[in-house]
Nucleic acid binder design. Structure first.
Lengths: 203, 203
DNA sequence: CAAAATAAACTAGACAGTCCAGTTTGATCT
DNA sequence: AGATCAAACTGGACTGTCTAGTTTATTTTG
């Protein structure tokens, strides 16, 4: 009926992006609403009119960033060369888990898992569970097609993914000064893929 | 001539314990010096006289708790039954990483790794690196004694330990509502030990 | 014109760190 | 042993800063 003016969707996105930046970079407590508003180029009041409270904004930000996490995208057409397929998967996985975005949101969700279990659950579902499911499907296909002998595809997926994290993930998690070279990482991945294939070889 | 009265070591310990409790439970920012003093049954001034600042107290607390982390304690005498040895190791490792103390300090060190790299480094050295080293020694012995065929003991240790974390660790890290049953965990560990042995079996 | 957005001031509470006035403690000196 | 003295300790008040969230008066815009 009356021509009601709707809130500006662009501003909502600006606020959300600013919130994502600050929350993931600094954590919940250290990110202030004043700065979020300022970085969004928006008044503080507008922030509160779009998102009722800091908590609400936090949820929305984490939800948004989890939804946008790009994931493995496995193609499962030609599995005849498992060595090649699995190495690619391992390399792709390494890229994903070392991306700045994924690391930041992982860190904050793990830290706030006590105070905000909803938030860490969103991440858990969106990232590790989702990826493990994808990989488990691949494992199941490798078994079906008698390329590898994998009794329990879910276990195999967990083993594979956790294994590939290796030392690199610890170094990122604890922000160590020294880092593995890309060569060392690649060596580890290749070693691990070979090991995986030996462990699940058809006998 | 000059009067020397030394600070009360008991109070220092009370303060440190209180700080460890609060920092590990609530994180650096959320733990207030007032509450630390109160829980230590000590005046705020005494806290500042023993530890100059909140940062100093934080470092001391993390250092203390890392030093006290009990670790694997492998006995490497009779390795003739690798299946048994490795399963025990896996079970012991699972206990260690699921202990409340280890989880709390892991969480806070990972979270503060940006703002306080010294702190996360202390943990990194004290826990994951130390354990991996221990296990790598075991792997090397298994190779020497021709029980398993392990080219790269360091890689094998990383593979083994990361693999054993499995789904359980993710659930703890993200404080999920649903948890694996002890039976499910044990099944996974046994599966993984078998897989590991197959992958590194002597031809 | 009415809803949306703005800037800026404001409230109320928390926190790190300091200050202070008075009390306890324990080592040293007589 | 008793007097002395400096340092440790106490509790509470205080400063300055920061924060979430609110209010208000004004401007923009569909």
């Amino acid at each position: 009926m009356v021509n009601k003016r709707s809130k500006n969707e662009t501003k909502r996105k600006q606020i959300l992006n600013s919130a994502i930046d600050l929350f993931t970079e600094q954590g919940y407590a250290a990110a202030s609403m004043d700065l979020i508003a300022k970085n969004a180029d928006v008044s503080k009041q507008t922030v509160y009119s779009h998102f009722g409270s800091k908590d609400d904004l936090f949820f929305a930000a984490i939800e948004q960033v989890c939804a946008s996490l790009h994931i493995l995208d496995l193609s499962m057409d030609d599995l005849s060369d498992p060595q090649h397929i699995l190495l690619q998967l391992a390399q792709r996985f390494t890229e994903v888990i070392t991306s700045k975005q994924a690391c930041s949101v992982h860190k904050i969700c793990a830290f706030e898992s006590g105070a905000y279990p909803q938030v860490s659950d969103i991440f858990y579902q969106a990232a590790p569970l989702r990826v493990t499911n994808e990989v488990a499907q691949l494992m199941a296909k490798l078994h079906e097609q008698k390329i590898l002998n994998i009794d329990n595809a879910w276990h195999a997926a967990l083993q594979f993914l956790n294994m590939m994290k290796g030392e690199l993930w610890m170094q990122i998690e604890f922000n160590t000064k020294e880092r593995l070279t890309p060569q060392e990482v690649d060596d580890y991945l290749r070693d691990s893929v070979d090991f995986f294939i030996r462990g699940y070889a058809i006998k």
